[in-house]
Amino acid sequence: MIHSFIEGIMNYQFLQYALITSILVGIASGVIGSFIILRGMSLMGDAISHAVLPGVAISYMFGFSYIFGATIFGMLTAGIIGFVTQRSRLKNDTAIGIVFSSFFALGIILISFAQSATDLYHILFGNVLAVRESDLLLTAVISGIVLLFVFLFYKELKITSFDPMMAKAYGLNTGLIHYLLMFFLTLVAVVSLQTVGTILVIAMLITPAATAYLLTNHLAKMIALSATIGVMSAVVGVFFSYSYNWPSGATIVLACAVFFVLAFLFSPSKGILFQKRSN
């Protein structure tokens, strides 16, 4: 079975594209997801990953790249959620629930009008085995930009994630950093559509980072571990998807979940089995 998979990679270009794209998404999701976890913004990641759907639909309907429409709607979502939270008595999670469900519903309706141009199932759940060369190049460029952003602003992201008040005292523009992070989160969510779909994007953003969080208390190690787990999940997911004809997005996400369960049980510092022994 492994031999057949390796042979497939050597012979089939579509499988090469699928594997490389999934690995790139795993790296980008793992890196940006680490900061989402530390900031307690998992719900925001969920909101943006769902709310980009109208942008995808509009892009298909008018014949331009889905990245533009999806990115606009992702940033619009972050802006509206911030506006509603600041201008009303509603808490952040309530605003997130209202905005992302509304945008997601709008996206499903718009997709129904664009049904001849695309496939709703693949948008919602991904189809990594249908990745084209243009999708691969787009994923590579955006993954590179995300990694560059984290490298250049690592210190700012670190201090604003752990101590926003101190960051303000140092004169950092925490609002700008927040919306920059939202922008790059949106980009990662957009390029993940082809591999895992809008519904499962949040799992790629959160699960590898959460797994890494259970394994280390050091941010740099957490980011590296999260990216590694994302890559491993991508490779395992593509392998089983190709070998057994399973849905690619769901298989990759399930691989992420398996790694999380292993860390949850066996992490030397935070695993529940080791905690019971120490007690």
Rank of each mutant, 00 (worst) to 15 (best):
F239Y: 15
C256D: 12
F162K: 09
H50F: 15
S134E: 14
S29C: 12
A117F: 14
L129V: 04
I109H: 02
G63M: 09
Q275Y: 12
A51G: 13
G237D: 10
K270L: 06
A130L: 14
N92M: 12
C256H: 05
T195I: 01
M75N: 00
T21K: 05
L152R: 09
F103W: 09
V52A: 05
V128I: 11
I58S: 03
I81F: 05
K158T: 00
K276V: 12
V188W: 11
I32M: 08
D163C: 14
F35Y: 15
L147E: 00
L138M: 15
M166G: 02
L106C: 03
F240M: 03
V231P: 05
F104K: 04
M44N: 08
F240R: 00
L219M: 15
R277Q: 13
T216V: 12
T186M: 11
I252Y: 08
S241I: 03
T71R: 07
A220R: 15
S112A: 15
G45M: 04
S101G: 02
N245R: 11
A140K: 00
I9G: 12
F259N: 01
A47Q: 05
N279Q: 13
V150Q: 03
T85A: 12
K91M: 05
A257C: 13
L214D: 05
I2E: 03
G171S: 10
A130H: 03
G97R: 00
S278I: 13
L265N: 02
A18C: 09
G271T: 07
F153W: 07
K91P: 02
F153T: 11
L136A: 01
A255D: 11
S233W: 10
T174F: 14
S22I: 02
F100H: 07
A70Q: 05
S59R: 15
E156K: 06
M232H: 00
V188Y: 04
A70E: 03
A167Y: 10
L110F: 13
L129A: 10
P54D: 09
T216S: 04
I27N: 06
L53I: 02
I272F: 14
G55N: 09
A140P: 01
I123F: 08
K155D: 04
V238S: 09
A210N: 11
I98T: 03
K158V: 00
V261T: 09
V128Y: 02
R132H: 14
S49W: 08
Y66P: 01
I36P: 01
T174M: 13
G69H: 06
N173L: 14
A189E: 00
I111K: 01
H3L: 13
Q16Y: 14
K155M: 07
F240K: 04
D163T: 13
V25K: 14
S65A: 14
L147Q: 05
V99Q: 10
I37S: 08
T211K: 08
V188I: 00
R39H: 09
G197E: 08
A257S: 13
M166E: 03
T207P: 06
S243Q: 15
M1G: 13
I80N: 02
M41T: 01
G74W: 09
A210Q: 10
S34L: 06
N245K: 13
K276D: 14
Y60L: 07
I159G: 04
F5C: 03
F5E: 06
A209R: 00
V188D: 06
L129Q: 00
F260E: 04
H178I: 00
L205H: 04
L53G: 05
M1T: 07
T94P: 06
T118C: 04
L19T: 10
L124H: 03
L254N: 02
T251N: 04
M182H: 01
F184C: 01
